[in-house]
Design a protein around this nucleic acid. Structure first.
Length: 466
RNA sequence: GACCCCUUCGUCUAAUGGUUAGGACACCAGCCUUUCACGCUGGUAACACGGGUUCGAGCCCCGUAGGGGUCACCA
């Protein structure tokens, strides 16, 4: 059997971080078993679904590197088929027309609530002769679910779970306007798409029992189910706006790398010995769905930041520099020029070791592209004493005559310090202040190289003259 | 409320019924050092609780507590 999985988001919003993890698990499971990973857009809620959201979700999935093996299927295009299956169920007696009115339903709810009972819709139309059906009155189509016995789901994550059929009521599969209900559409689509493994959020678990009854009624083989626990906020409550970012789009804007987000999400709820940093290739090799834990896990933004810093250091310098440039573009306090990309790329090996996100990285790179004269922080100003300015002027001459590479510049500063009886810090800090306007930066020789001879000397001259 | 699920350091997790309960993040201390980081070394910190079963339980069983999910003509 060839494994076929699917991710089925509904385009009522952006791709949620929990959805991203579900998609990742589906993708990894399919790849691990040399199967296919498919996409289905559940856009049957015409009110809330938008084409814009669909595109945003597709973009996020692409950004995460979760490419589907077939074009995405739009659920809304399949309505005729959903109705057809409902008719078959009607014809075979596995479904019936229910003429219960909203008022009658409401009365049943009120009664159940008043009696402190749990509501189970028991439609009288289940057992009535269809000949008694009122002509012209609207009806819904309900599944004639078994009343005896139990329904068992052998879930790949949750294990074997059984529910008495008396707990399940006859769910609606077709609305009174003739359109299919999501629960029904999902089953028909998963079957028609030949999905073998339905990996989805645990919030769908209860529905699975009702969906299973549709498979059974149609005589279709049920796929294997795997319900993965949800992601909670740091306080254990359901992840919501007040916890911070929750859509992939937001994490992207906040400067997280896709490989880092995937790595973090993978380790949330899944463990494989001591592995922490997992590449996509390793993930495909190691991941299997039955290793996913059953307890919900909490979002830990600090750990995500750490994982991101690890992948930042692994990332290609040119790629990072381009991203930084994009983030810096349009800022009117900067002077981006033809040399900007060169400078940022040159310093990238040092910069990326000091940042946890691309936002931090971009901010740390700003000094490279600031117009002269530089603004100095108070601590930097304190470094620029008359004595130190004199030293800087002297140093400028030596620097002008030195090869612009890290090793010779480092040697130059050290010999200067030794010759003038200064500690290295007493030389480097004033120079750092002059070059960056701050007292914090990557190694000073790397900064010199990134700036280039001309710019470095201009900055030293400006600071010494200030 | 009903049904279902869950419970190992603060967090994410590891541990054929036999381990000083391991790792990672975070936190603390020290080292390195031209600043800031990185890195290195060390440290604090967990089997929710109560009963069983067993020579022996974090692992098995029962209960309690706490947390979560679902109970729409939404998806």
């Amino acid at each position: 059997m060839t494994v076929r999985t699917r991710f089925a988001p509904s385009p009522t919003g952006r791709l949620h971080i929990g959805g991203a993890r579900t998609a990742l698990f589906n993708y990894l499971f399919a790849r691990h078993h040399h199967g296919s990973f498919l996409l289905r857009i559940e856009d049957t809620d015409r009110e809330r679904s938008t084409a814009e959201n669909t595109q945003l979700i597709l973009d996020s999935l692409a950004w995460l590197g979760l490419k589907a093996d077939e074009p995405p299927l739009l659920q809304s295009t399949r309505q005729a088929r959903h109705v057809e299956v409902a008719r078959q169920l009607l014809a075979s007696g596995h479904a019936y027309r229910c003429y219960l009115t909203p008022e009658e339903l409401e009365a049943m709810r009120a009664e159940a609530k008043a009696a402190g009972r749990n509501l189970r819709i028991r439609s009288p139309w289940r057992d009535r002769d269809p000949a008694e059906a009122p002509q012209g009155r609207p009806f819904v189509v309900r599944l004639r679910a078994p009343r005896e016995g139990e329904t068992v789901i052998d879930d790949l994550v949750q294990g074997s779970v059984r529910v008495a059929n008396t707990e399940l009521d006859d769910m609606i599969i077709l609305r009174s306007d003739g359109t299919p209900i999501y629960q029904h559409a999902v089953v028909v689509d998963d079957h028609d798409m030949a999905i073998t493994h339905v990996i989805r959020g645990d919030d769908h678990f209860t529905n699975t029992f009702r969906q299973a009854q549709i498979y059974d009624a149609m005589g279709w083989e049920r796929p294997r189910f795997a319900h993965v626990p949800l992601i909670h906020g740091p306080d254990g409550a359901k992840l919501s706006k007040r916890h911070g970012a929750q859509s992939v789009t937001e994490f992207r804007e906040m400067g997280y790398l896709p490989e880092a987000l995937c790595n973090y999400l993978l380790r949330l709820g899944w463990g494989h010995g001591d592995v922490e940093i997992v590449s996509r290739a390793d993930a495909i090799r190691l991941f299997d769905i039955d290793e996913v834990g059953r307890a919900p896990s909490r979002m830990d933004y600090a750990k995500l930041a750490h994982v991101n810093s690890v992948w930042l250091r692994e990332a290609d310098d040119t790629r990072l520099a381009r991203d930084v440039l994009e983030r810096l573009a349009g800022r009117d306090d900067l002077a981006l020029g033809p040399d900007s990309e060169r400078r940022i790329t040159a310093l990238m090996p040092a910069l990326k070791e000091r940042a946890k996100t691309l936002v931090e990285l971009a901010e740390a790179a700003t000094f490279l592209v600031r117009p002269l004269p530089l603004a100095f922080t108070p601590k930097a100003t304190a470094q620029l004493t008359p004595e130190n300015k004199a030293m800087l002027r002297e140093l400028a001459g030596e620097i002008a005559a030195t090869e612009f590479a890290a090793a010779p510049l480092d040697a130059l500063l050290r010999s200067h310090a030794e010759r003038t009886g200064r500690k290295m810090g007493a030389v480097a800090q004033p120079l750092r202040a002059a070059l960056t306007g701050s007292t914090v930066s990557p190694g000073i020789e790397a900064v010199l190289v990134a700036l280039g001879r001309e710019e470095a000397l201009a900055r030293i001259a400006a600071a010494a003259a200030a």
